[in-house]
Design a protein around this nucleic acid. Structure first.
Lengths: 227, 227
DNA sequence: TTCCTCAGTTAACAAATGATTAAAAAGGGG
DNA sequence: CCCCTTTTTAATCATTTGTTAACTGAGGAA
């Protein structure tokens, strides 16, 4: 899953240069040549990073930036301003409007790549451990939501914890004892049959459409999450 | 509550220059002149941002950086590398070790300030803008007014702070404890049930017309602001 | 193959846990 | 002292949970 970079720039030569280089780096790239359209596209596509020309027809980069930073939904998208000359005043203004970095034309592609990499690393700290996917199952520990095939599924607290535990070590078989210890807690005593009940409830919940069962029972050993 | 900037640099003249300028900007500043000590101090003081010389006695800036980025507790602290010359190779290496930005000596204090401001804004999303919108909700931190669908809504002080907090990280689920700590304050003791009461009042207040509820309750976990 | 046994599945229900709500008590300026 | 907001309390409401017991099906023994 590669990052999506949006370019807002009206000089065609620069756009194609950028596009060529960024795609070589493995990014998904889209662009727009006018400010108004750029803003619209950004809001609908929600890219992971924006390269924006300081001057743009229709709506200036500054305006777009301000607009984005106002809205919670988009103010996390890092913006790199492309400024025409190395005028310090412009740089400062760029930062003030909420740009996260700027690069002066002409720029070194190598350096730009490094800056992009840095901003992307910074803006996606959660994706490593807070959102976990396993085949067509996705669980978000921050928002406490679970999705199967991009459709949301509602789980009770215990089922959530159970799935969360399974997904940490998919394919591994856990005995009822292990599940009780890890999901319920070391010192809590409940019947081991209770696990079966919750497995069932979890199975029912994640069994959407005609998808594969996902939870395998290993006779006389326990359960596991399988693809 | 101003940000805390840590300087790891062995040239005394630069340190005092930086210190003077940063303190004038309102930052809390501390520093160390050797790598090993710097790392120790950083880990104990947990500054909000680090200015680090590329070359340092005992332990190089690169090493410190790598060390920090490895540790989950510290890898969110932005690092600005101070590189001696403008050699592109060095810049790139700086980014690779996890630095978030670099500045070449001699540097413009104005530009450095701008970069610091930018990185801090990024790592502390709350200190961002004065007017924030989330779907059809708008909150103005200056005039302390709240609007839903452009209609003004009146909230009590606590409800305002509560909503303000939620809107900083929409969709994220907060436990009652977290809400108490962040909205009421670390050292204040109130019953956790109190949160429910304020959630209720907030819900009633922002529930205008036949709009969606916006505040989700996640059983045994907490509450979150949803679109 | 057939039957038996054991382990897993399923449904139903009662108990417990957690959230909502209203109302009363307690603060805290003006 | 009065008014407004906050906090506590407690009753009520809703959902989740654990238990039980009957059911089902796999796999081994005869």
């Amino acid at each position: 899953m590669s990052a999506h970079v949006f370019i807002a720039e009206d000089e065609t030569s620069i756009v194609s240069l950028l596009k060529y280089n960024l795609e070589k780096e493995g990014y998904k790239v889209s662009h727009s040549e006018n400010g108004e359209d750029a803003l619209k596209q950004i809001k609908s596509k929600q890219p992971d990073l924006i390269l924006m020309d300081w001057m743009l027809p229709e709506l200036s980069g500054v305006e777009i930036c301000k607009n984005l930073k106002k809205d919670n939904k988009f103010n996390d998208i890092p913006v790199i301003m492309l400024t025409a000359k190395g005028e310090e005043e412009d740089k400062l203004k760029a930062f003030d409007t909420g740009a996260d970095d700027y690069v002066t034309k002409p720029f070194s592609q190598k350096e730009l790549n490094a800056r992009i990499k840095s901003l992307l690393r910074r803006s996606k700290p959660q994706s490593s451990s807070d959102i976990v996917e396993f085949t067509d199952l996705k669980i978000d520990r921050i928002t406490k939501r679970v999705y199967r095939k991009d459709k949301e599924i509602t789980l009770g607290p215990t089922e959530f914890k159970l799935l969360d535990f399974f997904i940490k070590n998919p394919k591994r078989v856990y005995s009822r004892e292990q599940l009780l210890n890890n999901v319920w807690g070391e010192d809590i005593y409940v019947e081991s049959r209770t696990v079966d009940v919750h497995i069932r409830r979890l199975r029912q919940a994640i069994n959407i459409q005609n998808t594969k069962p996902l939870i395998r029972t290993v006779r006389s050993a326990g359960y596991s999450l399988e693809s």
